[in-house]
Design a protein around this nucleic acid. Structure first.
Lengths: 116, 116
DNA sequence: TATCTTACATACCAAAAAGTATGTATTATT
DNA sequence: AATAATACATACTTTTTGGTATGTAAGATA
């Protein structure tokens, strides 16, 4: 997107689509949520927190989130490598709403369990 | 999912993932948002509201949302067929949060436009 | 009779997202 | 010398999601 005129009307009129482009996918919102819970997490900690993620996807998703300015990556020049991830200010804006989603999701799970 | 014990710990502890399974994908949240705006929409109206969607995906997405009890489908026994879609009570619970997402997305678009 | 309307079905294809397996760099530790 | 630690890279494969093209039913309309 070079400028606003390149943006189709439905994007201008539908921030939902755009927002989902930024935080959609299997892992992004979960990573943001965990960073919201813990403030700072290292690569290995994230890996252990999301046991179903592969290193390929963890790396790729963190890179996407960093490029989208939702998280900040801080590298310490050490061996072995030490890298910390935390939410950016923009990323923090999403937390109340990911929290809401989390609560809704949990409630739905409980409802499903009761019904079944 | 037969019962709660079948649910992996990370699901219990991460409603975000579950919620995204329910409303993730290219079209679901947008359909919910438009139904939130208009209350009731017919198949053709939804198709025109989301010009980039194919009939295959519109049908499939509406079916998924109905099976997940986020929307309600009302069929009038007429020819040509007339079918109306609206939000269920559960679906309505998501609207404040999709609205929030929409506003955040629009703001991000504006920010991007100004930066560029 | 031919065409239109609406809401789909469906088989096959394409693109995107995610996964697998193997590998690297460099200091620290055993 | 061998192994460990951490955070990745990368080529190829598989899975998932979405798209294309063609088609249907039945009453209404021209």
């Amino acid at each position: 997107m070079k400028n606003k005129s390149d943006i189709p009307d439905c994007i201008i009129n539908c921030g939902v689509e755009y927002a989902f482009k930024r935080i959609g996918g299997k892992y992004k919102a979960r990573i943001l949520w965990h960073l919201g819970m813990k403030n700072v997490l290292r690569y290995g900690e994230l890996s252990r927190t999301l046991p179903d993620i592969t290193t390929k996807m963890l790396t790729q998703t963190l890179r996407d989130l960093e490029e989208d300015k939702l998280i900040v990556r801080k590298m310490y020049h050490e061996v072995p490598p030490k890298v910390e991830y935390s939410l950016s200010d923009t990323g923090k804006e999403l937390i109340p709403f990911i929290e809401h989603l989390h609560l809704w999701g949990k409630k739905q799970l409980e409802t499903e369990s009761l019904v079944k």
